[in-house]
Design a protein around this nucleic acid. Structure first.
Lengths: 370, 370
DNA sequence: TACTCGCCTGTTCACGTTAACAGGCATGTT
DNA sequence: AACATGCCTGTTAACGTGAACAGGCGAGTA
């Protein structure tokens, strides 16, 4: 009846009636029935997020940002996690959200198997992939390759002959792209490419990978694919009596909150996970509002943060690596170099940031810099 | 019609008809309409979780465990986060979930303001509080006080004259309980109680708190209220040239995945967040299934994990603190001492665990050991 | 006065499901 | 043969909302 008009703010209700309805609503503790509304409108005002381990810093941060942005526009968020990273459990999680009649799904799919699973989602359900590689749906991703290149070039410019790499699992897009960026930088500088060691993102695997590297001759710099493995690597080096950064420099990836307080504070690449979450929601809402599914790809540049875990090889001095030495391969792509003021510092931190446009877009998949 | 019977597995359908219906369902891609079902049954098969910052390790772990357990029993999870920890934003988040017609809500309310907000939730909606202090609803919590007591007694038994404390924010239950346990242990041992320093759980605040403590005379042991602040404290001590554990011993709380790889590996208390999540879901489902709201309180003991950040004062040797020195005030309560095999070790770790019954229950609020 | 128009409020129906009830049919019992 | 019983399937109504339409009423106009 007229109540519906009041709830939906339709103008064709007189002020008097409106007030009477509102008064009655508060008096009775009336609350609109979402099920009835969804039944008649066909819209549930609920979105789904399917993700791997939401205990990890990255997915957790994205989830939080997505939830907040969604609630702001009146949408609820329902979550589905993957017990294991394979196509089947992805399908099950996706199906569970579909059964709930979500209006769209954000899939955090950093694993190649989940990306292939994305090929089989029906065309009529809005979907966005986060870190989804070459998924056949709109995608939001951080420019992992650029970040890895920056990290490697930073180490080379400090004077290291080459840079070792502790990579992530080979079936993760982020691991692949970071490995590629590392390889690119070494190739461009015509350096020897050392054999890489793989971990599984965990501190333990970083610890074990570093132990294997320690024997290698000429080891002076390691680019570790994430901060968690970097802390394991730091531990292994510490146990082996190898001081960081005096004898070996370390760069991580992610800038987890603890990274600034590692021993020593970690030079790393910050990913703006919150921004990734918000952008992915925006991309999803376009589809929910009727836009056809594109292959649009939003790429967000990482921010390089120089702390104290990197230094020129063989120097016993105390000056940390300087920010000025960190730069991407200038001239290609929309990224611009710049510096930001540090948020604060327990130790001196300097940044070679990528500011300017916060995110670049491309309608073609895979526009990471060569 | 008959379809409904097939979907709901009612026995009064012949095999033939059932097969025909199932065949038609797959052929047509039929999916039951949850809105219509919810409208007629009055049940949405959705539960809500309201939580502070889900980026933190604890809440994120609980959320994950809750989501998995809920999906196993056919319930969906909808989340609502708090932009800030105060009563009002808690009320808004709670209300947002109510508007979605969730059947019950798990409130992760480690902050006193959110606990008071719990007093005003209607009696007819199932609610469970996690770390909710003396909330007037069923509660699941880790025995913070016991953990703090174990940590402090461990340090005292190593020979430290007293133990300093870097506490969490005073308006958090966990901070209050950990402070109390620390105070209890010192009082029982008739030791001087040093002035405590407060942080806000962040690595930075731990760093700053440790800097303030460093001046204090006779500082040889610090119990830090969580691992994140502990890493900041380790950093501050490292910068000040104070070796850990040789000159100062450190104990943390939480056992975040990185703790094992700190420099040095951190002695800490593990909280089984996953177990907390599962227990809270079980408690919630009792109410959803019709049980009246109780004041039941499930208390889960923490597990003490000895690593290398603790040692007897003034010893330059390399033996870490031994597990045998860690014990609760024996005889009170259902907890039994015991050891577990380490899951694995980057460094030698030993454990004085609290095994046996994984959780103790109490119908009266606040049964923490004296 | 009769009519049109605009503003507001009320009525009807459909959304897809389930609870409750009705009924058909075969089998068994008296 | 008449009837009861059990097994299965079909019919009806209701859940609470919003879209579409109907209609009442006052003001303005011819």
């Amino acid at each position: 009846m007229t109540v519906s008009r009041v709830i939906n703010d339709q103008p064709t209700v007189s002020q008097v009636t409106r007030q009477r309805v509102l008064a009655a609503m508060t008096e009775l503790g009336y609350r609109p029935n979402v099920a009835a509304r969804a039944l008649v409108t066909g819209r549930t005002r609920t979105l789904g997020v399917v993700s791997i381990d939401t205990t990890l810093y990255g997915p957790a941060s994205m989830l939080l940002a997505i939830e907040r942005a969604a609630r702001d526009i009146g949408y609820a968020i329902s979550i589905a996690s993957l017990p294991s990273v394979d196509r089947r459990s992805f399908g099950e999680a996706f199906e569970a959200l579909m059964a709930q009649a979500v209006e769209g799904i954000i899939a955090i799919t950093p694993h190649t198997s989940t990306t292939t699973a994305l090929r089989h989602v029906p065309k009529d359900i809005p979907v966005v992939a986060v870190e989804g590689g070459r998924a056949p749906v709109p995608t939001v991703a951080v420019d992992q390759r650029l970040g890895a290149r920056l990290a490697t070039e930073h180490l080379l410019s400090l004077g290291h002959a080459t840079v070792a790499h502790i990579a992530g699992p080979g079936d993760w897009h982020e691991a692949q792209e970071r490995e590629r960026g590392w390889r690119d930088a070494l190739t461009d500088a015509e350096r020897e490419i050392p054999e890489l060691v793989r971990g599984d993102w965990s501190p333990r695997s970083g610890y074990e990978a570093a132990q294997r590297l320690i024997g290698a001759p000429g080891l002076t710099a390691i680019f570790v694919a994430n901060d968690q493995m970097a802390i394991g690597a730091l531990r292994a080096l510490s146990e082996a009596g190898i001081p960081v950064p005096e004898r070996v420099s370390i760069v991580g990836f992610d800038d987890i909150p603890e990274a600034e307080f590692f021993t020593p504070p970690l030079t790393t690449l910050r990913q703006e996970f919150g921004e990734v979450g918000r952008q992915s929601l925006a991309l999803l809402m376009e589809q929910v509002d009727g836009a056809p599914r594109s292959r649009r790809r939003i790429v967000i540049p990482p921010e390089f943060i120089v702390r104290e875990s990197t230094r020129a090889p063989g120097t016993a001095g105390s000056a940390p690596g300087t920010a000025g030495s960190a730069r991407g391969s200038a001239g290609s792509g929309p990224r611009s170099a710049g510096t930001k003021t540090p948020r604060s510092a327990a130790t001196k931190t300097e940044r070679a940031g990528l500011s300017g446009a916060p995110a670049s877009e491309a309608s073609q998949p895979d526009t990471a810099p060569r």
